[in-house]
Design a protein around this nucleic acid. Sequence first.
DNA 1: GGTTGAATTGAACGGGCGTTCAGATAATCT
DNA 2: AGATTATCTGAACGCCCGTTCAATTCAACC
Lengths: 194, 194
Amino acid sequence: MARKQGSHADITGPRLREAALRLFARHGFAAVSMRQIAAEVGVQAGALYLYTPDKQALLFDLMRDHLEDLLADWAPPEAPPLMQLESFVRHHIRYHLDRPDLVFIAYMELRNLDPANFAVIEGLRRDYETRLEAILRRGRAAGVFDVADTKLATMALIAMLTGVTTWYREGGRLDRATVEALYWDMARKAVAAA
Amino acid sequence: MARKQGSHADITGPRLREAALRLFARHGFAAVSMRQIAAEVGVQAGALYLYTPDKQALLFDLMRDHLEDLLADWAPPEAPPLMQLESFVRHHIRYHLDRPDLVFIAYMELRNLDPANFAVIEGLRRDYETRLEAILRRGRAAGVFDVADTKLATMALIAMLTGVTTWYREGGRLDRATVEALYWDMARKAVAAA
DNA sequence: GGTTGAATTGAACGGGCGTTCAGATAATCT
DNA sequence: AGATTATCTGAACGCCCGTTCAATTCAACC
């Protein structure tokens, strides 16, 4: 009939986010109900609304925090373009392998965002892509990269790298360091001048 | 109260598939209702069940037909590995640019498939990936490709190529032939021996 | 130990869901 | 023209949805 023993806001809040993340990633935003999330948290559905204004905000906050973290976690080193690219690629692989669920949601649930929320997320994503494109442009100007179109190359590289989350499984045939090295090898060759 | 003038099964059937395809691609399988699809077709929801056993079959048939078409539409030419790879890459880009909605669904709605249906689709996808991997293996054996791990390279290439559907828009800055050529250029360099 | 306030329940709201089916209609066949 | 059949409607089934809110319980403070 009311509050259970030992339950507190600073526990339920994070648990809500974790449950929403896991369930959204597993079944998709539209296929997950607030009641399912509540059950995972160990609470009735109504209680969730003490921690989020609505289901949409739950999704948006996860995506925004993820992309802001991604942007905050890496800045191009002061170095030649090839080293900047290596830094970007290796960080991208590491970061994405560490957060498969968040990455999955951020790429799959864009169409479930309200238009206003979509614009925000889209902007953050573009910021990230722009960073890679800037590296490619500098490198091309310096003659170390051979890319006919930096925008296309940016999209191609990011798609290739992000794809690692679709097949990599912890404890599989290849370890993280190897995966990181092999992706860097392919990325480097794909854009390097002959 | 009943059948409208000029309506026939051989019209409604295809229209149902087209409507489902468009709506699933736009809003996601879980977010689209049978009533929405029926409205798009211009029919009441109940009538849809003359053409599909249920909503799940609608999704599965779209995905299976797409992947079977993809597999039927291309076979490796009898040629050196490098030419086989070029054929694969160019076909992949062309095929995917021609069917953005089907490609989108086939990659995004996997988790909405029943386990049995998922296994079928997964198998077809693996068949397709295996074709690319076979090319890479032959090329590596012949010394024309430098890939440390053919499975990883397969996944990386397919992810890079399929990603074209996320940004390419008809009538945009680059035409199809250019896009195809640039992706082939990057793919070739990514796996080519030095 | 009584009061206060944060945390949660449980029921309810209106509405939409996938699916079924008896009945109505229009095209086709005899 | 009459019978048959394919096609579709409209209503209904039971169920679940996101969200709200009064009532309740528990922990913390005086």
